[in-house]
Design a binder for these strands. Structure first.
Lengths: 188, 188
DNA sequence: ATTATCTATAGATCTATAGATAATGC
DNA sequence: ATTATCTATAGATCTATAGATAATGC
């Protein structure tokens, strides 16, 4: 039953990976430790050898998901320096992202959950958000202050557009919301 | 123990009222039927005389909270027809709203929860969102299409700004986010 | 007689822990 | 000998229901 130190480290990584997906899909209270472990191919008793608590895992899962998002933002912005807002808006506000929360933006999937969580969780998210804002701001025109303000407003619009598009029942309205924010950011 | 038909109707209303507050504060899975009933001054066994299920109550709580928000939007927009975006932005994006989720926007507090809920819940939210968008759009300049697009983009920016401001750990960043979106909407 | 609410509980789940097991790493 | 994982379970919670109680509304 025991595995090598190396395999244990891989198991731990896989738990975080699975958790970052399932938390985003089902919410923090929507998935239990036993099912998270099952998703990683382990039994739930082993969980507490890897983490102190479920919320500890959430903090790590947030960190991992944010790191991945930051890398995505960086690569997109580097590939399209001529149109940062339009590029990010189209990548963020589309039906694929809307319909696959488990692979998408942690803030959009878990914002209210994180707001209710402890400091470690919020720290992980905050660090990622700051990086994203810095990446985007650096590509925008204007004074440093204007860059920062525009980056924040753009991120807010994308985030809110995605949250609304997911919460709403009417497929036409949902699509319209995505497109409206994209259009607004393309012409900004 | 039994109360009058009239009192029972008031009790039912109070359950919905309490639920709309506690769901927004703690999330759908963050508060149980027993504590909701205790919040309304009743025992939890009586719950199922009023509602078929907890999710049924969520749908009603969403409807009630959205109705209240719609009335607030309407009154604000009527009082300040000269600056709809700035007025709404300042009313929505401030520290009071950020720090009292239980009394605030249902979409910002429960967006992801609603996205995972059943059709009745989504219907209640969608109906409210449509009314809010119509109210705001009617006050904006441009063609009907432009009005609608601007209303959607503005609502998205407000919503996203609030969600981020709540999720983030750094008080300065949180305030900056609120102010950045307000500034953007004031000059739009 | 009807019914709104109560007490009590079924049955399922949840986080976390205790102790056994068996393979690794010294 | 150490330790990663397992089985089993404690103890708390959760939604929902059953049946008793007592006041309303006919």
């Amino acid at each position: 039953m025991r595995v090598s130190r190396e395999q244990a480290a891989l198991n731990r990584e896989r738990i975080v990976e699975v958790a970052s997906k399932l938390f985003r899909e089902k919410g923090y209270d929507g998935i239990g430790v036993a099912d998270l472990m099952k998703g990683a191919g382990l039994t739930h008793g082993g969980f507490y050898g890897h983490f102190d608590s479920k919320e500890d895992l959430l903090a790590e899962a947030c960190g991992k998901a944010m790191d991945y998002s930051v890398a995505q933002w960086r690569s997109r912005l580097e590939r399209h320096p001529e149109d940062p807002l339009g590029t990010m808006a189209r990548a963020y506000l589309n039906e694929t992202h809307r319909d696959s929360a488990g692979k998408g933006c942690m803030v959009a999937a878990m914002g209210p959950d994180v707001a209710r969580a402890g400091e470690a969780v919020k720290n992980a998210l905050t660090r990622g958000v700051k990086e994203q804002l810095a990446l985007l701001a650096a590509r925008l025109p204007g004074t440093p202050q204007a860059q920062r303000q525009r980056a924040m407003a753009a991120y807010a619009a994308m985030l809110g557009g995605l949250v609304m598009a997911r919460a709403v029942n009417d497929p036409e309205l949902s699509k319209e919301l995505l497109e409206a924010v994209v259009s607004q950011l393309e012409q900004a």
